[in-house]
């Protein structure tokens, strides 16, 4: 592209062409949905099993996997941001949304004793917000359906015992994993 005089028509065409090129065609955030989907599924399944079938005094032990999740997520996002040649306006917003939800989840769990540890339905509600809004931002319907699944399961969880709330959490992870795998598959197919 060289320096030369351009007509107003050419200017408009150029502006449209460049904006069209910059528009992101596909977003692949599947890594985080798959990572957190599997961590939560495993941790809640362990929690359910230990509560329901054993006398183990620390049934929540599986949740220590969250520490690995946080470290891997931070490491991956720092690595990706260094490699990235272009950052779209929405890229940073996902991070802020999930950070805000993560802080809210931590606040609920930290004060869990006040709620007599019936915290799961609230956590599932927060996951519903994150998944539904992320899906809307990416224009990715499977993720929005995942959000609706979380809302339905939260209704059920409000009416269940602690052990069965953990089982519901395990099942609810389909709301992360199914859209996560669809996203990953699409990204591969579209060569993102």
């Amino acid at each position: 592209m060289k320096e030369k005089d351009i007509s107003p028509e050419e200017s408009m065409a150029l502006i449209n062409a460049m904006i069209g090129r910059a528009r992101k065609r596909y977003t692949d955030n599947s890594f985080y949905f798959l990572l957190w989907g599997w961590i939560t599924l495993i941790a809640s399944a362990i929690h359910f099993y230990l509560l329901e079938y054993t006398e183990y005094p620390y049934p929540y032990i599986g949740w220590s996997l969250n520490i690995i999740g946080v470290i891997v997520s931070i490491f991956k996002s720092v690595k990706d941001s260094k490699k990235r040649v272009v950052a779209n306006h929405t890229d940073g917003t996902y991070g802020w949304l999930w950070l805000a939800l993560g802080i809210s989840m931590f606040t609920i769990i930290f004060n869990g004793a006040i709620l007599e540890w019936s915290v799961v339905p609230f956590i599932i509600l927060l996951m519903a917000i994150g998944t539904f809004v992320s899906g809307a931002m990416m224009k990715f319907v499977p993720l929005q359906i995942g959000g609706i699944v979380f809302w339905i399961l939260s209704f059920v969880a409000f009416r269940s015992t602690e052990a069965y709330q953990m089982l519901i959490t395990s099942i609810s992870m389909l709301g992360y994993l199914v859209p996560g795998y669809i996203m990953k598959f699409n990204a591969k197919r579209n060569g993102v």
């Binding site: 320096e3 150029l14 460049m18 040649v85 890229d91």
Partner: peptide, 20 residues
């Protein structure tokens, strides 16, 4: 802005947060 390359650059940057 009324220059082909500078206009292209600014149109590109207006659509993204940052670009390499």
């Amino acid at each position: 802005l009324h220059s082909q390359l500078r206009l292209a650059v600014v149109s590109l940057l207006i659509s993204v947060e940052t670009a390499d």
